[in-house]
Amino acid sequence: MTTEYALEARGLGRKFGAFWAVKDVDLKVRRGSIHAMIGPNGAGKTTCFNLLTKTLQPSTGSIILNGEDISRLRTSDVATQGMARSFQISATFTQMTALENVRVALQAGKGTAYRFWRPLGSIAHLNTRAMELLENVGLQDSAGVAASDLSYGKKRALEIATTLALDPQVMLLDEPTAGMGHEDIEPITELIRKVSVGRTVLIVEHNLSVVSSLSDRITVLQAGQILTEGNYAEVSSDERVIAAYMGGVEDAL
């Protein structure tokens, strides 16, 4: 079953004490598109992201994935429903090699993960696929390197390879270029473009130049609510958006 929108949020809100971090967010992510969510610091981007991935429970509203309400599912179930996420701080398994990192994800949803009495050779057939995924992100030469010994850019690439191992229909990327130098941003942007083919991607991003070249549609958040939505040209010329970003990161525009 294919719906026009892969991911939808309806009236999504989250309250911390008396403070609404996110309020009345209606979001529609068109299937096959790259959709960006931007906003100044404290706009509620990360809260929104955590709500969509079910890391946080919403106070109000619902989340619809492929036409099905996932508002009540747990984090791990969301992944098995075809939506995978990345993390802002690169989330790798530091003491394991790049190949092992990807192989963990390849075991997801398979009974093999519980087989504590079987030797590792019993999942050797996953190595081929793991290598393909590493090649896909340019890490074929680092397969045997512990994740903690990889450079920052390579860690992000490894994380993307691990996410792709789930073969998700919908990918949620949390500030994929956060903390990166210029030399790393370009390759990661290219990589995201490459792996998003045939998938739906929602990116939460601070860096507007990344968003401008990647996304089909942009939602701007401010103070926990949607300020406006449109393509890059529309959004970047919107005076309210410019005002919202003033004093913060105006140079990024």
Binding site: A84, M96, Q107
Partner: peptide, 24 residues
Amino acid sequence: HSPFGEILKAIRDNEARVESLGFR
């Protein structure tokens, strides 16, 4: 040194990530 053991090590290194990959 089992498929299960690999998931254990992954949990040790980053539990939230393991959960996000669909494991409990």
